[in-house]
């Protein structure tokens, strides 16, 4: 297991220690089937980590464990050195007291709320819908270019706009860690690179820790400080690969940057 940059005096913001998740297998009777096993990694505060792996590698399961919409069957998950999830606990704490935001594959916007009301929803349920919250929301709406669409309902927005709305709905309540599960998967290339640029800009402004799952190698390199490559099921970390491309990055011409092609090749081979 490679040592992450989270080692040092301060504990890493997030640590997975020998985490496993198993389900009762339908094929083998009562024997269990491990989807994730012996998975460990650390993430330092402010890091942008992408997670890439072969399809069916339990990537979403991994994010569900971190977001605590699911509990591990083995090992433990630590947030700033404190154990937040371990087997045997019975109560789920989804979002770990608003410490962890989760941008899922589907935008999951509430169809009966306007775009702005969707963005304000987390503040509303947290009882933080004050002047300051509204200002934050307005700033974010502006930052992703959604100004003028505040009163539109989700079905009146394009796919890219809905993704932006889902993204800033998570940013608005300021969780220090944000998980993203192939958030730009279903978009066309143009919209996608626009959103990647938006995301990097927001990340550099807000100083968040981001774990970003993707199956697109180029995307994984373009965004990340570090790439975690997952192995086939049962999933563990196959490689921990730093991305030595300086920031700020020009995403349009990321292919031309020194070392990109070599890195792309290495990773491509690893996940095949």
């Amino acid at each position: 297991m490679a040592e992450g940059p989270g080692d040092g005096a301060e504990p890493p913001v997030l640590e997975m220690r020998d985490v496993g998740r198993c389900f009762a297998s339908r094929d083998t009777g009562d024997a269990v089937q491990w989807v994730i096993r012996h998975l460990s990694f650390k993430v330092a505060a402010g890091e942008f980590v992408t997670i890439i792996g072969p399809s069916g590698a339990g990537k979403s399961t991994l994010l569900n464990l971190i977001a605590q919409t699911d509990l591990p069957s083995a090992g433990e998950i630590l947030l700033r050195g404190t154990c937040i999830a371990a087997p045997g606990r019975r109560r789920l704490n989804p979002g770990v007291d608003r410490q962890i935001g989760y941008v899922t594959q589907d935008d999951n916007l509430l169809p009966w709320r306007s775009m702005l009301d969707n963005v304000l929803f987390p503040l509303e349920v947290q009882g933080r819908l004050d002047e300051e919250g509204r200002r934050r929301a307005a700033t974010l709406v502006d930052a992703v270019g959604l100004t003028g669409f505040e009163r539109h309902y989700p079905h009146e927005l394009s796919g890219g706009m809905r993704k932006r709305c889902a993204l800033i709905r998570t940013l608005v309540y300021d969780p220090p860690i944000i998980l993203m599960d192939e958030p730009f998967g279903a978009l066309d290339a143009q919209t996608r690179s626009q959103l990647q640029a938006d995301l990097l800009r927001l990340w550099s402004m807000a100083g968040k820790t981001i774990l970003f799952v993707t199956h697109d190698v180029a995307e994984a390199i373009a965004l990340a400080d570090r790439i975690l490559i997952l192995s086939r099921s049962p999933t563990a970390i196959a490689a921990d690969c730093p991305v030595p491309i300086p920031r700020p990055r020009d995403l349009q011409n990321i292919y031309a940057v020194d070392g990109f092609a070599a890195l792309h090749d290495t990773i491509r081979r690893q996940i095949q």
């Binding site: 919409t69 608003r98 899922t104 589907d106 999951n108 009966w112 349920v125 709905r169």
Partner: peptide
């Protein structure tokens, strides 16, 4: 009712009654 909407609401901190009022009610309407 879309369970993913419920999961999203719980994750951002909505209570059980809040989920009922927001997602169940609007979903049934």
């Amino acid at each position: 009712i879309d369970g993913r909407l419920v999961a999203m609401a719980r994750l951002v901190g909505a209570s059980g009654t809040r989920v009922a009022r927001e997602i169940y009610w609007n979903g049934i309407l």
